[in-house]
Design a protein around this nucleic acid. Sequence first.
DNA 1: GCTTAATTGGACGTTTTTTGTCCCGGTGCT
DNA 2: AGCACCGGGACAAAAAACGTCCAATTAAGC
Lengths: 342, 342
Amino acid sequence: MREILDIQKQLLPDLVDTMKKRYTILHHIMVSGLVGRRTLAMSVGATERVLRAEVDFLKEQGLIEVEASGMRISGAGRELLEQLEPLVKDLFGLTELEERIRSHFGLKQVIIVPGDSDVSPHTKKELGRAGASVLRKLVGEDETIAVTGGSTMAEVAYHLTPATPMKGCWFVPARGGLGESVELQANTIASTMAKKAGGRYRLLHVPDHLGEEAYQSLMQDSHIAEIITFIRGARIVVHGIGEAMVMARRRKVDPETTESLRRDGALAEAFGYYFDRDGNILHKMPTIGLRIEDIHSMDHVIGIAGGKSKGESIASVLKHGHEDVLVTDEAAAWEVVNRLLS
Amino acid sequence: MREILDIQKQLLPDLVDTMKKRYTILHHIMVSGLVGRRTLAMSVGATERVLRAEVDFLKEQGLIEVEASGMRISGAGRELLEQLEPLVKDLFGLTELEERIRSHFGLKQVIIVPGDSDVSPHTKKELGRAGASVLRKLVGEDETIAVTGGSTMAEVAYHLTPATPMKGCWFVPARGGLGESVELQANTIASTMAKKAGGRYRLLHVPDHLGEEAYQSLMQDSHIAEIITFIRGARIVVHGIGEAMVMARRRKVDPETTESLRRDGALAEAFGYYFDRDGNILHKMPTIGLRIEDIHSMDHVIGIAGGKSKGESIASVLKHGHEDVLVTDEAAAWEVVNRLLS
DNA sequence: GCTTAATTGGACGTTTTTTGTCCCGGTGCT
DNA sequence: AGCACCGGGACAAAAAACGTCCAATTAAGC
């Protein structure tokens, strides 16, 4: 059932909205028994005229009966509402979930795809598609977009398609080398995105695990400095979110730091920063690129991550309080709201 | 799956059309490889401007990639088409069937609901709903609508709902008493419809199995004559279709006539007339009301019947050649087209 | 290499649809 | 009988859809 809806949504994006709207109206009419147009318009939050159009439609469909004294639901309407119930529960479930997370963390937008990325590769693909779609809607012309690495980001890159406003965009890595395998590195993701979207890209090649003085000298290099300035001019950043300990291991963080992270209760990792349960920064990877203050002042900070196991990490990053858009999956979303309740 | 679509169709009647349109365009683009807007507009039968809007939409959804040299399908688009296939096959299956029957018999419209009324009561209900919906769309103001009896017609009556243009309509029986049980008689159906639709009705009470002279004297009666004239002024007739032999038995046709019908290969019955395989009239029930020439000159002749067993009968009546709209179910429709092939 | 036919995307006036806002004649409740 | 609310008609304004051009660009054929 969900699959059908997901497919349909691609061919009719406002299908769900329209269904929700009409369902709400019909449902209101049912519980009201006999209700007038203006009263109804108030309670569903629509102007009189648009509600009138909807009512005319419902009448045309024979779902309501309208007399001079008001309108009531018809037998067919009642029957439809009954059939609609499971469908709507599903529909509303996710959108309700989105709204709950959105308002609690003060985000601009939350998108939840059904499923669990941990168990279903298909869900991860959906996550990528949703991420690409969000990005497509948000980019302006000639914008700079900073991206991080990770398998989820790779999926986003894969699902990007050429869009006119993206032609002039620059894709850059948010931070320097972060010790991942080549195909999941930010540099690779940035270039893939640029190719897929028809944009341009600039890379930042910084070796991992350099000493402090080596970094200092790198920063002196005019070419490096120039690209870092360029990166910091980005107004959009798209990043994955990881579990702190998993990321620490994967990036071969040294034992002392790992232990310190564990002791301090590190939960999440995003763009090279480690966060605890309350969204405080515990540690910063020794590499260059976007600083946390750059991210705080961004126009659009888009976090993309899914899977039940990442739920807590996502909540931690959201708690940090500078995300704008979250793209996640159902399993992770439930974990996030569960943490809100406890 | 079908159920979902049927439910959705009630809230978004043109959902299927839109999906079909966009699927067709996307599919065309895929098979064409690289194709231009105008060329595409020709092959899918749309004007350039509307196709352009569709193309913009598909691009926005990331389903196609459009370059200066033309447009081609994207990975996501290809994937979607694949997922869409079973859905569309189902969708197109019925609409293709509708179109095939429509064009072959030169009808104005054919509506096929999924299922088989013989085995599923739910399908019969759907048939009734579809019939009611067609009627709602076709009636003008202050029109006279002639109806016949039968269980299918009773279902149509049940699903009628008040509609403004129907307020001034008259519902009348197409023919006099046809020896059915009270609740399935044309008179009962007409009055039920009028009550459901908020219209008015006039009845025609004629005892069954009267002698010729009795009919003649009835016709002299000014009240009867007046209502018959009224009935003949109807521009819309909605009728069921039955199997000849089944109907003959149910109506207690005398043995000689029954035998004569059998000998002549009577297949179908509609509004009191019996038809053979080629749509010729074999016999006419001895009762008054609409004559066959009245029906021939009607604006809208709407036939409603379903069930695999009625397939042949429906085909016979269609063959007679004066139907305008057919509402049937999938099982019957397949029987009809099977007869076309043999 | 040049021509030619086809492509997209922009522009603009026209037509159709949607929307906001009245008001009128009823209906039902008090 | 009074009153508050009802549906529905009407109409102008705003918005969206549409038909129809045209300019810049690209691919392919010659």
